[in-house]
């Protein structure tokens, strides 16, 4: 039950408070960023010169350290010359929120500077494809192997010591090797994602599989299930819900390898876009691209969480552990109640 205490140990908060905190989770960092951007006294270490006055190397529009600006003006004032006029500014690498929000929209509309460069949506699509294939290949091998390791001590002892060793090797370290073997295009990038995901995946899946209650397996044995049937009729359906949750978490890890993977061989995808925009000093586009990665990640997790609720009606309440707070904000109350009723019926 919800209590009146905001800091009660292991007690849920009322839905109203939960929602408020979920909103605050985004509002607080955004508020900090806005304060730094819009309130000149918070930071603003630079000055943008508007009228150079008598200082000979000042040019209108140039950014200069506040101390330097003040020092030059003091010199000019002492000599009786015209003073420079300027406004406090943040460094160019910290654009204000509204510019980033605008960039989220304009970055898609702005054609690339060179005809050979991809549009933003093309870059994104390429990144998503690399993630997809890397993660799919890893899962196609890692999930069955993990289930085998979690079910049979034989596979566990045969595989896990090596996997334990290998997972400490940083995936990017294989970049040069991947290029040498697989060329410079998408294949080595997919390989990096694969290496980064696969070894963790085997261990995580094996662990989840081992958590299946032994009595369920024993019950099935006393009901006459063969070994094969134990695996396919008890172990797999028994752990599938937890595996689904694991996969959602692992997909997040795969995204963290994306940027490194895309720098292998020819830089491509969203990383290429970010690097190019940084080179052009369009930092709002850089931020917009980074945010897009976050939005895609969060969005896909929410979608997968919703799908999970429908796939596993017997454990509807266990789904969406991470994103449930957010989900509550986005899914109307009536729809949630309907989903709950559907489970009960």
């Amino acid at each position: 039950m919800a209590t009146a205490d905001w800091f009660a140990v292991r007690k849920p908060l009322s839905p109203k408070r939960s929602n408020l905190l979920a909103v605050l989770a985004f509002v607080l960092p955004l508020g900090t960023w806005s304060a730094v951007s819009y309130l000149p006294f918070v930071w603003h270490p630079l000055v943008e010169v508007q009228k150079p006055g008598s200082v000979d190397y000042f040019v209108s529009g140039m950014l200069i350290d506040k101390e330097e600006f003040v020092a030059q003006n003091r010199k000019a004032a002492a000599a009786g010359h015209a003073l420079a006029v300027g406004e406090p500014r943040n460094p160019i690498y910290l654009p204000a929120p509204h510019r980033v929000v605008r960039a989220l929209y304009t970055a898609f509309l702005a054609p690339p500077r060179l005809p050979t460069e991809p549009w933003l949506h093309q870059s994104l699509w390429q990144s998503i494809q690399v993630i997809f294939w890397g993660f799919m290949l890893s899962s196609a091998l890692g999930v069955p192997l993990g289930i085998l390791c979690g079910t049979f001590a034989f596979f566990s002892k045969l595989q896990e010591p090596f996997v334990e060793f290998f997972r400490y090797l940083p995936a990017p370290a294989f970049g040069a090797l991947a290029v040498a073997v697989l060329g410079i295009y998408d294949a080595p990038k997919i390989a990096i994602i694969f290496i980064g995901t696969f070894f963790q995946q085997v261990l995580v899946v094996a662990n989840t599989t081992r958590k299946l209650e032994l009595p369920l397996i024993e019950a099935a044995q006393t009901l006459g299930a063969s070994k094969r049937q134990l695996v396919f009729k008890v172990v797999v359906p028994g752990v599938i819900v937890d595996l689904y949750t694991d996969m959602r978490i692992l997909l997040g890890w795969a995204w963290t390898y994306l940027i490194v993977a895309e720098m292998v061989g020819t830089t491509s995808g969203i990383t290429y876009f970010i690097n190019q925009q940084a080179r052009y000093r369009n930092y709002e586009n850089v931020y917009a691209a980074i945010m897009l990665i976050g939005l895609i990640g969060l969005g896909s997790d929410l979608v997968l969480g919703r799908i999970g609720r429908h796939l596993f009606p017997w454990r509807a309440e266990a789904q969406g552990a991470g994103a449930s707070n957010l989900l509550r904000l986005f899914v109307p109350k009536r729809a949630r109640r309907r989903a709950a009723a559907g489970v009960a019926a």
């Binding site: 209650e213 009595p215 369920l216 024993e218 019950a219 099935a220 006393t222 009901l223 008890v234 359906p237 028994g238 599938i240 819900v241 596993f312 017997w314 454990r315």
Partner: peptide
């Protein structure tokens, strides 16, 4: 046949 204390029904 065996009946356990912990029910051991298959939840799925």
């Amino acid at each position: 046949g065996m009946v356990f204390q912990g029910y051991t029904l298959f939840p799925w």
